[in-house]
Nucleic acid binder design. Structure first.
Lengths: 196, 196, 196, 196
DNA sequence: TGCTAATCGAGACGGTACGTCAGGTCTTTAG
DNA sequence: CTAAAGACCTGACGTACCGTCTCGATTAGCA
């Protein structure tokens, strides 16, 4: 039972599957999306999906890779005007807009729930999708640290968690609305703990 | 088509369903648990489940209510030795132990993913399960605030999010290990931003 | 588990069940009639049906008894003008009209299929419903025999089967249309074999 | 929603279903046979049955086609020794043996009750199963007619009904035992009416 | 530039679970 | 104790998808 030869893979079919998945995510709640539905929407045989992807979650994941490659640059970067709080306010407010937009929020939720259930998928996610983003955040904080705006002994990964964790948690668990005021209050308190 | 009369509900059947659900959660990953499986394990007809619960998630939710009522007291409370950081360290370390224990972690993950997908269930969760816990946290912080250990203008809900959000997010997204060191580093930075 | 005491039986409930059954037979094909449907239509508890009847077929049977008692006299009789062929033509044409009328044909079909499947019900049918009718037929033939219109050695039960069997069979198996012409042709040939 | 492509039909599955049906008919009263039971006995998915057959009755019908194709020749024929009464006695006694044998009688009863309830099935039955048999009967009678043993003006279809109808009716309605004596008495009277 | 082997769309297949319906039993409340 | 009501366990219904499989009909890489 040899695994399929990637060289012979039909790129059209691959794109059709991922596009169909993204389309369906706009129309149907993720749990009700089926492999058969994706195949039929993509005009593709079911076997073509089973040949190249291990699970519905794997398709979803690749669809996200495609989406990210589409609108994000390859090496994401946070703005750096020198004013950390202002820059983060900008970034987090933009994030909040995205998280409040069903077109982005629904697919993200789908991926998030798959990550929560599937350890190996979570690993792939953190390596391929989250890592570059996290590195950009870390880089921005490092620059602030080097500029003396953050404490020298601050653990930057903890800092990232403190800044982004509350928002992501509030979003995913629906524990409250995500507003600009919330972002401001969060950043005010969070950053206060990080200054020298 | 009248909805069933709660007065005639068989408490034995209700308990059997919830117990079976909790049992199965120890054995089978939540997505592979089925209504049929619960019914058969509970020695109950499928219709009895469909009569009283709207979905598998609703059963899961009630099972959690039962579980919480079982080992948590009715009005949870955080320890108060006067030393906020020490108390929170204790609490968070205990939380981390729970989150690292599959017996608790797996069911919680199941509920968390359902909350992420189902708005009305999330509402019920926050009202019935999360609210009392959150109130306990708020109460503990308020006492610290009144004792002058926290800034007067601190938004306690934001504070709660900053303290617990990073941990829950890291746990659910599997973005990194949950260790005592992480708890300590998190609390150190988080609380520093909240002091007067 | 004593069987119920017939003396305490509620006649209203009994009639309501049988009437509901007859009503439903006008509206729904017999195989899709359910005990629950009868009970609900009759405004009667399911248990009341299960207490007094052994099966849906038993209810059907009693409904027929009621129906027969209603429009047939207690001791049915065939016309006797002295002209056997004319009398039988009259009777069979009337029978054919009934068998072509869905309002009568459908319930009869229902009973017929139950008889074919359930030996004890068939026995009850022949004893309670068919016997008087058959006796009337036998009586009419006997009179013809005594009047010298039929052979002395003719087995009257065979004669009855030859006269009515083809019609009933054609009706139940739908092997052809039931018309007056068919009745006439049938009677002509059948009776020719029975004359002295 | 196109109907399935017969070219892709799996003959093994088809045979397994029909064989399983015939097997079950030997073991379980027809009304208690279920599609699930057939599927499981045949080692076949339920959907495979629902894909190719419209109802349990349709499966039963095809099983009968198979059975008939098995032991009956393609073009059945009645014996012709020149002595019509002797030939028919032979045939009807054989029929009576079959009708008294549960292995044949039970499935026939099942089909007969379905025919009584389902007009389109009855049509298919008469076209595919009954017609050739009836033609053979008609042919045998025609030859007797041409040999001057039957009246020239005899309607052969009525004659067939008079000969076979009483037996089938007595069998299906269980109105009396089917014995050789009954066959003889029946034939004696019936044929007497048909001679020139 | 054909050969040939893998991929492709299609969809039948053996299964599992779905959510519904009804069967027959049991319990509750009222008369 | 009967009866209406209806919850209960059971099991079958007919449907939807699962993941595997087979079927021609393209391809795409090698010979």
């Amino acid at each position: 039972m040899p695994s399929p030869d990637p060289a012979r893979r039909n790129e059209n079919a691959r794109r059709a599957v991922l596009d169909a998945t993204l389309d369906l995510l706009q129309e149907v709640p993720y749990p009700r999306i089926t492999i058969e539905g994706i195949a039929s929407r993509a005009g593709v045989g079911k076997q073509t999906i089973y040949r190249w992807w291990a699970s519905k979650a794997a398709v979803l994941f690749d669809a996200f890779l495609l989406l990210s490659a589409r609108d994000g640059s390859d090496t994401p970067q946070l703005p750096d005007t020198g004013d950390l709080q202002a820059d983060l306010t900008l970034v987090l407010r933009a994030t909040v807009v995205e998280l409040n937009d069903p077109r982005l929020s629904d697919p993200m939720r789908a991926l998030a729930t798959e990550l929560a259930q599937d350890e190996s998928l979570a690993e792939a996610y953190h390596r391929q999708l989250d890592a570059p983003l996290r590195e950009a955040k870390r880089q921005r904080l490092r620059e602030a640290q080097e500029a003396g705006q953050l404490a020298d002994d601050l653990d930057l990964d903890v800092a990232i968690d403190i800044i982004w964790g509350p928002i992501l948690n509030r979003w995913l668990q629906r524990s409250g609305p995500l507003s600009d005021e919330y972002v401001d209050a969060l950043l005010r308190t969070a950053l206060r703990g990080m200054r020298p």
